[in-house]
Amino acid sequence: MAISSTLYNIFLRRNTTMLATVFVSAFGLQLAFDSGSEKIWNTINKGRQWKDIKQRYMEKPEEE
């Protein structure tokens, strides 16, 4: 109960602070969601994407 009332007093009591909280958390949410979905996508498609196989072709010119 104490936690919820502090939360309420800090973020939600004033409409402007709540709006600011919403937009800031939207920004954070975007970063987290983008990087998270990117990670899941790369795990599903492991070994299929160019970034997984380019190492083979990048190293070749250096050896020659």
């Binding site: 599903i44 498609n45 299929r48 994407q49 997984d52 196989i53």
Partner: peptide, 15 residues
């Protein structure tokens, strides 16, 4: 394989 909804092209096959 690459036509599944969650799969990319296999870029090795593309090459």
């Amino acid at each position: 394989e690459h036509q599944k909804w969650h799969k990319t092209f296999d870029h090795g096959a593309l090459r």
